[in-house]
Amino acid sequence: MMPLRRKLADGAALLFALAATAFGLIWLVWILWTTMAEGAAALTPSLFTQMTPPPGGSGGLLNAFYGSAVMVLVALVLGTPVGIAAGTYLAEHGRHSRLAAIVGFINDILLSAPSIVIGLFVYELAVRPAGHFSGFAGAIALAIILLPIVVRTTDEALRLVPNQMREAAFALGVPAWRITSRIIYKAGLSGIVTGVLLGLARIAGETAPLLFTALNNQFWSASLAQPLANVPVVIFQYAMSPYDQWHALAWAGALVLTAFVLGLNLMVRFFARRGNR
């Protein structure tokens, strides 16, 4: 018979694992519930039709949504091709190239690097020489955050493509670059798209890199060459203010942002798992 001590230890471990899981889930539920409850109260159609108001006034977040959308799109346009190209290099040459090994290593460091350092880097690069903040600088900062995500997922997706495909194509005399662009990309496309969408979800919510690049703009501005309103910085400014109307708008913006980011995440993971079965 098992001594009591061992049974107790086992039971304690079981309890601990259950408690730990409950602990993690409680925070998730609490945070999401708060965001939904507070945000829903301020969720009105005017959120999407009116601009950011002066203190004490009512309005919406139209210019912020627009600015965020533009910067995220430009970041995708800048970062995705570079990321896919670099990921292709890692996948195709990863085994026998020292450059690929180093780049893979450094890429993973960049993935977890503090985003505020990236923001300062782009400030020194694009804001200081220009003499003013700009939406374009914000887009560059977001592109740098996006880059390692796309590189990593492209690398993984392309590695998963079975070798028989490559060997069959070689046997048919297809040149190497065509193999990659026509065949391997098609085969790994779902993985690459997954990576881009996950990257999109990540950069949509990033605040720190935009603090010193795009700054903010209380008026309507569609120009990437000037400070551009964006959702995370507006939420930051409004939440840290004393005005109740601004708090309400901040929660509404937080709800929309969270719904977008989590919705994208769930959708991507759901379809990825479905595809893998």
Partner: peptide
């Protein structure tokens, strides 16, 4: 189109 819009409005 979006890029042109963004730059064009400048």
């Amino acid at each position: 189109a979006l890029l042109t819009a963004a730059c064009g409005t400048n």
